[in-house]
């Protein structure tokens, strides 16, 4: 039943121009960034080869490319997620799901999986660019795996936050802007809050701030570090907002 909803969402995404526009823009931006970085790398390669223990092509080309993808997802995920609940409620089609023999949890998880599948496609397309370098050089596959895993978890976190905010309103645009604002606020919080809280010895608020700053967790992955603490933080963020979304939709049935 979850997969029925997930596939419906995925189909609906591809039926709308939005998904194709987002895919195109992302592909163009990543492509440009990737080629630019590769060009820079080729220019400084002679100097690099003389230095001992210098960073390789994966670190200098793949990591920044993935950072671009992360930045674009910050804009793209709220836009893609706004239709999930807000638009269904606006078009009054949500009733079809809520009157079917499906629990609210299944609806939320199904919609989340539909969106995340699309986001994984974006990540896969982005990963193909650095992977194409394998034809001419030795890649650091461990680092690449870390980047892909980090980006996938980050996308899941973004998707969960945006999905929750899509439950709060019937205006798709308000949902998109709200989600974007929330993600941006998380980015700002993540910069400093967790470290400064930790410095004062407030470990619980610091841990909480860390959960609420997904980009901070992503940073460790971008250094090639698959760190259980960062994985836990991103998974917690995702779970937290999915639960909030379920509760929000349930409350709508109770409150009317």
């Amino acid at each position: 039943m979850i997969f029925t909803i997930a596939s419906k969402e995925l189909k609906a995404l591809f039926a709308s121009p939005l998904a194709w526009i987002v895919l195109t823009i992302i592909q163009v931006l990543i492509g440009y960034g990737f080629l630019k970085r590769l060009d820079d790398f080729l220019q400084i390669q002679p100097q690099l080869s003389q230095a001992a223990n210098s960073p390789g092509v994966t670190e200098l080309v793949a990591a920044p490319t993935f950072a671009t993808v992360a930045a674009i997802l910050l804009f793209a995920v709220p836009l893609l997620a706004m239709r999930l609940i807000a638009e269904e409620r606006r078009n009054q089609t949500m009733v079809m799901l809520t009157s079917a023999p499906i629990s609210v949890t299944e609806i939320v998880i199904g919609k989340f999986l539909g969106l995340i599948t699309f986001l994984l496609l974006i990540i896969a397309l982005a990963a193909l660019m650095p992977l194409s370098l394998a034809a001419g050089t030795q890649l650091d596959y461990g680092m690449l795996l870390s980047l892909i895993a980090g980006l996938a978890l980050l996308a899941a976190g973004f998707a969960a936050v945006s999905l929750y905010i899509s439950c709060l309103t019937v205006h798709p645009m308000a949902a998109a802007l709200g989600a974007f604002g929330a993600l941006l606020a998380m980015l700002l919080v993540g910069e400093t809050a967790s470290d400064s809280l930790q410095a004062r010895g407030w470990s619980v608020p610091a841990a909480l701030a860390r959960v609420l700053s997904p980009l901070k967790s992503y940073e460790t992955f971008s250094r090639g570090l698959i760190d259980t603490y960062s994985i836990a933080c991103l998974l917690l963020l995702t779970a937290l907002f999915l639960i909030l979304a379920v509760r929000q939709l349930d409350a709508r049935r109770l409150r009317g």
């Binding site: 078009n91 009054q92 089609t93 949500m94 009733v95």
Partner: peptide, 10 residues
């Protein structure tokens, strides 16, 4: 329901 829950794109 009063407003049929139709997905117009399908």
């Amino acid at each position: 329901p009063e407003t049929p829950p139709l997905y117009r794109d399908l």
